[in-house]
Write a protein that binds this DNA or RNA. Structure first.
Lengths: 203, 203
DNA sequence: TTTAAAAAACCGACTGGTTGGTATGTTTTT
DNA sequence: AAAAACATACCAACCAGTCGGTTTTTTAAA
């Protein structure tokens, strides 16, 4: 086998094993030796590919975030009006929730570390800002085309992200507690149509 | 000093020190010895009051949750219509966010552990269910009194909790990233009034 | 009230096991 | 032959929890 291929495969195996271990036992409880054994490689290989446990962790985070970004932007491209697009993205939640359910529980570790480690925080904040801008643009577009109320686009985007983050968080903590995919659809629907009954009639 | 007083004070000191350490360095990185030093007590005292590190952790969680529950229910009791009450509670977010900001970052550890430890999960889920029922009742009341749309109360309550959880999560990860108290008010307002512009006129 | 014993609270040195990381050697590719 | 990739034994540091002993408080008998 070519060297480059072999190397890349080992790296991938380590990443996959680490993802599994972190999700199963948590970051702190997952030893490097344990990860190596799960990946079927030696410690030498590990430290040849990664500067340390933390570096591996951040690498994992980066990969997941770029994946999410790609998935989301793809889903938004197939619809006409902005409300339709948002509904589509909400429906896609089912896919995200179900596909790699156990693996994603390591995201809690990310958030946890981000609150203390500046490097991790930056790694999370940067794509977050991109998401926010993306949704803000989308919402502004909806306002311009007249399908959305004349709201503050940035604030509305933040609300949307907070809502989905919260749903995802609860899904991670208590996967069996509810049909979170359905809950996401319901929540987006509720956000779109409003909870309060309008007092006066429309013009 | 009386024995009971002394004992209780030591226990409180340990809890406070642990809260500080967990928030600052995380659960795993905070050693029992470190906590003891910060609290000004010995290991003997520690293990006299708590069965172990994990027990201390859960004790901390319990205290925080009961505090939150009390604060919230108090805030909901002073208003007339249901939308007003919800707005009031949103305004109270500023208080929650600002009061003990750094301390609360240990909640991320809770969520993280809850996804793996059944005991921690139960400790979080039980009050969560109470919150959900409480808000569902509130929303149902709003539907009955005609101030809210005829929505599914339980689903709407879940949405409300997810939204606030998400906001709190982001506040913990990136406290300086935004005015999260304001964002909470905005978000609740948005949820109440809806994002999408109604197509037809009202009756 | 005094006192002695029992109980509760507290102390701190010690340990057995774990772990991230390293140093050195070996295999495979270039 | 050089370099990249990988393997393995090893270590120093750390850490949750223990254990025998000490101080303080309470109890209760004298």
């Amino acid at each position: 086998m070519k060297n480059q291929q072999r190397s890349e495969e080992t790296r991938t195996r380590i990443l996959a094993a680490a993802l599994d271990c972190f999700a199963r036992y948590g970051y702190a409880a997952s030893g490097v030796a344990e990860i190596c054994q799960a990946a079927g490689v030696s410690k030498g290989a590990f430290y040849h590919h990664f500067a340390g446990k933390q570096a591996l962790f951040q690498s994992l985070l980066g990969d997941w975030l770029t994946d999410l970004e790609q998935t989301l932007t793809r889903a938004a491209s197939t619809a006409n009006s902005v409300p339709e697009r948002l509904t589509n993205m909400a429906r896609m939640a089912r896919l995200i929730f179900h596909s790699n359910s156990p693996q994603t529980s390591f995201l809690l570790e990310f958030w946890s570390q981000a609150s203390r480690d500046a490097a991790v925080r930056q790694a999370i904040i940067a794509p977050y800002r991109r998401f926010q801008r993306y949704f803000a643009d989308l919402i502004q577009q909806g306002v311009d085309e007249g399908t959305l109320q004349p709201v503050n686009a940035l604030a509305a985007a933040q609300t949307l992200i907070s809502l989905t983050s919260g749903l995802f968080l609860q899904h991670l903590v208590d996967p069996q507690g509810a049909d979170w995919a359905q809950a996401t659809e319901d929540a987006i629907h509720l956000l779109l149509h409003g909870l309060q009954k309008p007092e006066g009639g429309a013009p």
